Computed example of a mutant assay.
Amino acid sequence: MSKKHRRRRITAGQRCLIMLTAVLSVALALTCAYKALVHPPQQGSGPAAVSAAVSEVPPEEQDADQLALAAKAAHSARKADFYTVLISGVDDGNGGSDTNILVAVDAGAGQIYGVNIPRDTKIKVNGKNHKFNAAYNIGGMDQVAATLSQQLGIPVDYTVEVSLKAFSALVDAIGGVDFYVPIDMNYDDPIQNLSIHFNAGMQHLSGAQALKVVRFRHNNDGTGYGSEDIGRMKTQQDFLKAVAKQTLRPANLAKVSEFSKIFQMYVKTDLEVGELAWLGQEAFTVGADNIDFSTLPGEWKSPYIYLNADEVLNIVNEHLNPYVENRVLEDLGILT
């Protein structure tokens, strides 16, 4: 007679080992999938790649053209993990992009810096003079980016076109924002169906209220900031910092899916989903205290703002320049 095969009984220890192995396998798979999805944006492979290729040629074998090419490439060698992103608000009722902020993400140094471009900055497109906010009407975000890149002498790596509805929805998603309104605001425009009334001081603003505060330029009686757009940009910068501080709290990590839906509805960008996720991850790591803003300095001479080239160059090299070497005045294309 053959012996009956006994079924091996799995011990509690073996069960734990199997469960642990399964959990680790799933975790490993999720980690691999996450790493495959989330990745830093591309920086391009122009001058930096040329520099690397030329450097492989022994100096004694490099001719004059190669040396000149190497010098030009070295002048344009990129810093690691440094990206420039142009964010434009385009839903203000006139079709232009009245709010334009170039954001430099320096992940290597753990800093994020945004600079406002005054809407009345003098530009030239197709041989004609315009205000900066007209660039969007002329050629969309590509024209806005090309115009800004030409003026600042640095590339705009990516663009983000934001409907102001996204701004309002984000503020509501984080439960509103506590913000110090800098001045009394009293403005009514029946044509736009716009009514703005706030007292100066600390306010808890909903999305709709926040949109009114950042759009405000002056009161009906002409009082207000004194320098309408410069004052408005300062308020926008302060408000964006307040939003960043509240959005980048660990508790809001649970709202990532909600933020994603808002983004999909109201934002157009040439960044991929994985690149956006990487930038968002870096923003959480950097934290709101390491996010700063300023405005490109210039002087109003009707009908334009003329940028101060020396002061702009300082801002570019200190905060916005993605290249290893500093820019010089000849790199800038600021109109006089």
Results as ranks from 00 to 15, higher is better:
151 Q>A: 15
150 Q>Y: 09
157 D>R: 00
154 I>V: 15
156 V>D: 05
208 A>E: 15
163 S>R: 15
184 D>S: 03
200 A>L: 10
179 F>K: 06
179 F>H: 07
213 V>N: 00
159 T>W: 03
185 M>P: 04
162 V>L: 07
190 P>R: 13
202 M>F: 09
151 Q>C: 11
210 A>D: 07
161 E>T: 10
201 G>R: 08
192 Q>N: 15
211 L>Q: 13
150 Q>P: 07
184 D>G: 04
148 L>R: 02
205 L>A: 09
181 V>D: 01
188 D>E: 13
180 Y>K: 14
188 D>P: 02
148 L>V: 14
208 A>R: 11
184 D>L: 02
177 V>Y: 02
186 N>D: 15
151 Q>T: 12
159 T>G: 06
182 P>E: 11
201 G>S: 04
200 A>Q: 11
188 D>W: 08
210 A>H: 05
185 M>V: 02
188 D>T: 15
180 Y>W: 02
205 L>Y: 06
155 P>S: 11
152 L>Q: 11
187 Y>K: 05
195 S>A: 13
176 G>V: 11
169 A>W: 02
203 Q>K: 14
161 E>I: 00
212 K>L: 09
184 D>F: 00
197 H>E: 06
191 I>M: 09
160 V>H: 00
207 G>C: 08
162 V>G: 01
209 Q>L: 07
175 G>Q: 09
168 S>T: 09
153 G>W: 06
211 L>C: 04
151 Q>H: 13
155 P>W: 12
190 P>F: 08
189 D>P: 09
164 L>D: 01
185 M>D: 09
171 V>S: 00
168 S>Y: 06
156 V>F: 06
198 F>Q: 08
188 D>K: 14
161 E>R: 14
208 A>W: 11
181 V>R: 01
162 V>W: 03
160 V>R: 00
155 P>L: 05
148 L>G: 07
152 L>E: 12
173 A>F: 06
189 D>W: 07
196 I>D: 07
174 I>C: 03
206 S>I: 07
175 G>N: 04
184 D>I: 06
199 N>D: 12
196 I>S: 00
157 D>T: 02
164 L>F: 14
209 Q>I: 09
182 P>K: 01
179 F>N: 08
157 D>L: 01
182 P>V: 13
205 L>P: 02
204 H>W: 08
